[in-house]
């Protein structure tokens, strides 16, 4: 890709990328309390990649890094599911809910203001799926942006 947008667009992109990524991380981490979760937060983080590609046009080749992040996310997700099989009863069993420790608090029944240290394996799975989806969508955008340069377009 060999275009680049104006300096105004690039400066605004530099400023706006940080809040977009922070909002995506907020959506992922609060997935068990508020509307949101791994898929939505990952899509928001991938939209920052789209913004960077549109504004700058040229980019370094991050294909290997993004593939590694995606594979690591999926592998850790499957390992968490298998931990439910070995430590609990069935696959995807929530073995660490309410046992103390990381994300192991108990939630009051009924309507409550929401506590972040609850949920057992659900927030961890949210983080893994968020990693996978963000890397996967960024990779799709990157490959399509590179491939659009290799096709002749009629004027």
């Amino acid at each position: 890709m060999n275009w680049e947008m104006s300096k105004i667009v690039r400066t605004v992109t530099d400023i706006m990328v940080v809040p977009i990524i922070v909002y995506g991380i907020y959506l992922i981490v609060h997935g068990h309390l508020t509307p949101g979760g791994g898929f939505q937060g990952g899509a928001v983080i991938a939209s920052s990649t789209a913004l960077l590609i549109i504004a700058y046009g040229s980019f370094r080749d991050h294909k290997a890094d993004l593939s590694s992040i995606e594979s690591i996310g999926l592998t850790l997700f499957i390992i968490l599911a298998l931990l439910g099989l070995f430590l609990g009863a069935t696959m995807f069993h929530n073995y660490s809910a309410g046992t103390g420790g990381l994300f192991g608090g108990t939630v009051p029944q009924g309507i409550n203001p929401g506590y972040i240290n609850t949920g057992g394996t659900v927030p961890l799975m949210n983080i893994m799926v968020g990693l996978e989806v963000a890397a996967a969508l960024s990779l799709i955008l990157l490959m399509m942006g590179k491939a659009s340069d290799s096709v002749e377009v009629e004027a």
Binding site: H32, L33, N94, G105, V107, T118, T121, V122
Partner: peptide
């Protein structure tokens, strides 16, 4: 809430009750 200690029921279904779907 009593099984998973999760407030968001959609997330509880996605990652616990129907986790194989998500996988």
């Amino acid at each position: 809430q009593s099984h998973n200690q999760v407030n968001n029921i959609v997330t509880a279904i996605l990652f616990d009750y129907r986790g194989l779907d998500t996988l």
